[in-house]
Design a protein around this nucleic acid. Structure first.
Ligand SMILES: [Mn+2]
Ligand SMILES: [Mn+2]
Ligand SMILES: [Zn+2]
Ligand SMILES: [Zn+2]
Lengths: 143, 143
DNA sequence: TTCCTTATTGCAAGTTTTTGCAATAACACA
DNA sequence: TGTGTTATTGCAAAAACTTGCAATAAGGAA
């Protein structure tokens, strides 16, 4: 399966081009299945594309995010990580131990509608991280 | 009003110290009333503290955030900005024109509860940015 | 007030991320 | 299949952010 080749028409339709660099980066993202930092993407994609640059990786990740093929995420720490954009979801992260879980978008559905009618904004899919204490860390909290 | 002096006891109680650097940075944050980048904070605080370093600004902002006195925020762009922590709120940002508005936390209240019972997590105040199209940009979207 | 402990800072050297620009290569079209 | 337009890349330099460490100073105790 040429996996990321399916993205070519999407890019073409918007006047953009498919390149070996973009192909490799899409490949890396879609096979990893988790959030990757630009550095991690670079390390993996480099093996497929001779002479790939870090600058290109940064630019490409931002490009893919702008065009809806990748999703950027702030999982704490102030550093962006990326993942392939397939299913719409959000995250819960423990401030104490760093544990992290996914949340179905459906749980936020009605809240999104409330936000939309209250603000007039039309919400597109965000990819949000909520912070809190995981069940385990709540227990150890009771000194 | 010595404004940020009121934070001293909060720091002491946790075994930390109030310093001219922290005082100045708190002062800058609490008087600006909006999100500031580390660079902006540095530029303003520098005028009050001789020899203030950028490294100190970065460390201090992170420190204040960890201790609940400042709130970090990702308003798109992958770069952290900070604001003083007073009222709990979130943001709506237009992907097209960059317009931005605040959202009361109360609008997310029931969704937070739903998340908590579904996950077992105990949510602390996040400071979330949702993306979408503002009313104006929705109109111009209809080509 | 003075002394002591240690949290905090500045410095300087890393690392990461961004940017301008000229060279390259997709790909539309002849 | 060849050619031209221009989106995309690599390069190199800049800007933003992080880190280790020794010097400094906050503030508790005497
Ligand atoms: Mn995710
Ligand atoms: Mn805010
Ligand atoms: Zn935890
Ligand atoms: Zn707008």
């Amino acid at each position: 399966m040429s996996c990321s080749q399916e993205y070519t028409p999407q890019l073409r339709a918007r006047g953009y081009r498919m390149t070996p660099q973009r192909h490799a980066i899409l490949h890396v993202l879609s096979h990893s299945g988790k959030h990757l930092s630009p550095g991690e993407v670079y390390a993996k994609a480099q093996k497929q594309v001779e002479g790939l640059t870090e600058a290109t990786v940064y630019r490409t990740l931002e490009f893919l995010a702008e065009n809806g093929l990748a999703r950027p995420s702030h999982i704490g720490s102030g550093h962006l990580v990326y993942e392939i954009a397939n299913h719409e979801h959000h995250h819960l992260k423990c401030r104490n131990c760093g544990d992290e879980m996914e949340v179905e978008h459906s749980l936020l559905k009605t809240m999104y509608q409330k936000l939309e009618s209250a603000s007039g904004y039309q919400l597109t899919d965000s990819h949000v991280t909520f912070f809190g204490l995981c069940p385990d860390c709540q227990k150890s909290e009771d000194v």
